[in-house]
Design a binder for these strands. Structure first.
Length: 649
RNA sequence: GCCGACGUAGCUCAGGGGUAGAGUACUUCCUUGGUAAGGAAGGGGUCACGGGUUCAAAUCCCGUCGUUGGCUCCA
């Protein structure tokens, strides 16, 4: 074979020969014109390259389009450059920090000197971007010697790029140029600006240079772009929908929870309906846990400081927590409990344990308090007091994997029952280069990490692995769910822990009559009830599954003459644990229906003369309309059937 | 915690150096009704809080608190 040819392996496994120096774009042309029009970049041997970059050796090549995650991020990275070009032309002399793509769009950090950017100017920048995009300027890659790069940015007076250059080795430095804009950049980029057809700058925020508050604050401009105007419209529509579903808004409107300045920031007050919702979630989880061999325990809201010193939490988090509570006389110090595990360890210790007793699974809906940074508080998703659906499994080392798998099954059952069909799992391991952040021996860590990886594999979970994301005492498996709008939320967590049993000197007597150390598994399928409720609200837009709905029905008498009959119906339903109220206001039926629809009550039961005479109720379903008349008993069994189906295994 | 924006009735918001406004919700009355808003009247606000400027501050300035968009952090 001639050495002027390269073999290109495509994702479908086929191998084609091209002339040496062929580009991704040329390969695309040889496959189909449509692909050639859409190709944004090429993945060459696992590395994303410019579509125009020559390929000099045999390679496996994947052509990236808007449909690929990496295609999108290349597109947005190039869009950041386009925005920078627009900014530079509108505000000459500004300096640039970094401008990376992010999950949805991109940002660029910019130093505008002393004149701050106003929100109203964003539209002007968008227009300039689109104007520049229409010029279809190529993104041109250039290798640059370090000294030339430094000279360029010295001349320009951009100290941020000079700062970045310091960390780069000569020979690996590239510039990208499009139109009149040149930027230090590793790339890759899309072929030309013409691919960018729609742009929206979303918001402006401050961000410190290199994320360090000792440095100057730059103006960060967030934006998003699309290859089709219609996709931008859809995206903006999705943002509107997200706003409509915001749990803070729905929580207020549906009277689930509230906050009070007087009580304190980040401390939610659960209203009666919200409390009912919580209680239903708790009952559901308790039932599932009972079936899986858990036992409920109850522990106080405070504990001796010594307890948390023993666990290691005080050393790690004490300074940033709520400060200790001092007793009046004898200098004792108590902490508001920031987690339940130390208490559960002490319960384990209250009597000698045999290997035959294990595993022991202690569960508690324990309310914990953490002094989260004020700037981080957000609705119910980030609060200072919250209730975990916590449990700790104490088991023998040989039981770890089996127990871990059982917990995975429980988590998946919970997600399914609550309508989270789309989830991913993340294995969080310790950062091997930063071991001093963690407590415990290498041996224990290796064992713990191995059992998580094996258990996840055994259940066929699709996982991503993140180094450095472990808790300080052990590795974990976190579950991320995707909600109805495709947004990801971290919920459940499972953690293997060899450290706390050591620190609390937990023991059991083995079959060899010797003392052994049990292993702990921490787990919380919801994570916290607060966060879970928030995610659930946004997922279902406030239209809760029937079995969770705090107001499952409302009875709507046609006029006050039928209130008495409504009471009779209500008492029949109450006997079957169906909750709801009678709307006995002096309003017409149309009004009552409208209000019940707005309140997202699943069923409206209309009673008037006809129903009273025949002993029936007219059933109207939220969002669907009239289902016709039924006897109350018929409705009860229809209702129960829906619930049975929803939470069946 | 840091930077920016915001804070007027329960909610959504208008106004703006000199009697505080709307819609909706609430109360009362009329109406007794058939599947997404019947009519009328009425009550309700120290314009977040504390200072300052001014003859006069809800309005301008400063501070505090809170909310919010980010940054940093998250057992």
């Amino acid at each position: 074979m001639s050495n002027q040819q390269v073999k290109i392996t495509l994702p479908d496994g086929s191998v084609r020969e091209y002339e040496k120096g062929v580009s991704g774009l040329q390969i695309a042309v040889s496959i189909s014109e449509g692909l050639a029009r859409n190709v944004l970049a090429a993945k060459v041997n696992g590395e994303v390259w410019d579509a125009s970059r020559p390929i000099l050796q045999d390679s496996s090549v994947q052509l990236l389009t808007w449909n690929d995650k990496e295609g999108k991020s290349t597109f947005w990275h190039s869009s950041a450059h386009l925005m920078a070009e627009a900014l530079e032309s509108l505000y000459p002399g500004i300096k640039f920090g970094i401008g990376p793509p992010i999950e949805n769009g991109f940002y660029y950090d910019v130093d505008f000197g002393d004149k701050p950017l106003e929100g109203a100017e964003l539209e002007q920048i968008e227009n300039k971007m689109l104007e520049l995009a229409r010029q279809k300027n190529d993104y041109i890659r250039k290798d640059v010697a370090k000294k030339d790069a430094i000279a360029y940015f010295k001349e320009k007076g951009d100290e941020y790029k000079l700062d970045l250059l310091e960390g780069l080795a000569d020979g690996s430095i590239t510039f990208y140029e499009q139109g009149n804009f040149v930027d230090l950049c590793r790339g890759p980029h899309i072929p030309n600006t013409g691919f960018i057809k729609a742009a929206k700058l979303l918001n402006i925020a401050g961000a410190y240079w290199r994320g360090d508050e000792k440095n100057k604050m730059l103006t960060r401009i967030y934006g998003i772009t699309f290859p089709k105007a219609k996709e931008l419209e859809e995206y903006l529509h999705m943002l509107e929908e997200a706003k409509r579903r915001d749990h803070r808004k729905l929580g207020r409107e549906l009277e689930l929870f509230t906050f009070s300045e007087k009580v304190g920031m980040g401390l939610p007050l659960w209203l009666p309906k919200g409390t009912l919702l919580r209680e239903r979630l708790v009952a559901f989880m308790k039932r599932a846990q009972d079936k899986s061999g858990y036992q409920q325990v109850t522990t106080p809201h405070i504990g001796h400081k010594v307890l948390y010193e023993t666990s290691g939490h005080y050393e790690k988090y004490g300074k940033d927590s709520f400060q200790p509570i001092h007793t009046p006389n004898d200098g004792e110090e108590f902490l508001l409990k920031p987690m339940n595990c130390p208490h559960h360890c002490e319960i384990y210790k209250h009597k000698p344990r045999s290997y035959k007793d294990l595993p022991i699974r202690y569960a508690e809906f324990g309310t914990v308090y953490r002094y989260e940074q004020s700037g981080e508080l957000h609705g119910l998703t980030r609060v200072r007091g919250f209730t975990q659906d916590d449990a700790h499994i104490f088991c023998r080392p040989d039981q770890v994997k089996e127990e871990f798998i059982k917990v995975i099954d429980l988590v998946l059952y919970v997600f399914k029952a609550l309508g989270f069909e789309d989830y991913t799992a993340q294995i969080s391991l310790r950062d091997p280069d930063n071991k001093e952040k963690y407590i415990g021996t290498d041996e224990a860590w290796n064992k713990a990490e191995a059992s998580i990886i094996e258990a996840a594999a055994e259940r066929g979970l699709e996982t991503v692995t993140e180094l450095g994301e472990a808790a300080f005492y052990g590795p974990k498996l976190d579950f991320m769910v995707k909600d109805a709008l495709g947004r990801k939320w971290q919920l459940g967590t499972i953690q293997v822990d060899y450290q706390l049993p050591e620190r609390f000197q937990l023991e059991y007597i083995g079959s060899d009559n010797q003392k052994h150390r049990p292993v702990m598994i921490h787990r919380a399928p919801f994570g916290s009830l607060e966060r879970f409720v928030a995610v659930l609200i946004e997922h279902c837009a406030g239209n809760f599954p029937l079995w969770l709905s705090p107001e499952q029905i409302t009875i709507l008498p046609i006029s006050e003459k039928f209130i008495e009959y409504a009471e009779q119906v209500k008492s029949i339903l109450e006997d079957s644990d169906i909750t709801g109220a009678i709307d006995n206001r002096d309003e017409k039926i149309g009004r009552k229906i409208r209000d019940a629809e707005v309140k997202k009550i699943p069923f409206m039961l209309i009673v008037g003369e006809k129903e009273q005479q025949e002993g029936m109720i007219s059933v109207r379903k939220h969002g669907e309309g009239d289902l016709g008349a039924m006897r109350p008993e018929e409705f009860v069994s229809y209702f129960k059937g829906i619930i049975r189906e929803a939470i069946a295994h």
